[in-house]
Amino acid sequence: MSLEKKYQKEIKQILAKYPPEQKRSAVMPILYLAQREEGYVNKAAMQDIAKLLDITETEVASIIGFYSLYHDEKAGKYRMQVCNDLPCALRGADEFLNNLCGNLGIKVGETTADGLVTLEAVTCLAACDKAPMFQTQGPDGIKYHENMTIDKTLELIEALKRAEGEVK
């Protein structure tokens, strides 16, 4: 199904935010819609967006490439993005990230064997007073998890796993 058909209502709401002759502005919110299900924007969706907004497919691809929250490749269902930028690192974020790698048995950039979590290191998320912290990017959008410990993080992953089981 084309993106336009699938998210008819959402796309209409998005387009209403911008002047009709400037519908290109809708590209960012529509890209979020396009990667909602699979966690990345596939080729067909890029074509749909280009057509819908009267821009070229190359332009859509270059926007995906420019912004770090858009992805053109499949990863885990949830991207766990740990901030280890300077202020967080001054409050133990590097150690936290290392321990997390150890506990999950994966390196930064890798995905757990069950395909649930991809671990990433990111720059400042504007929560520097609540380190260690990370965000999860998944089908339900982006959520912050602050003042985290390894235990709390592993619990969160367990909860995501359980939710997964219920869906299936």
Binding site: D85, L86, P87, T123, C124, A126, A127, C128, D129
Partner: peptide, 10 residues
């Protein structure tokens, strides 16, 4: 709000 160390606007 993306300057490392800035978290007031949020």
């Amino acid at each position: 709000e993306s300057e490392p160390g800035t978290f007031k606007d949020r």
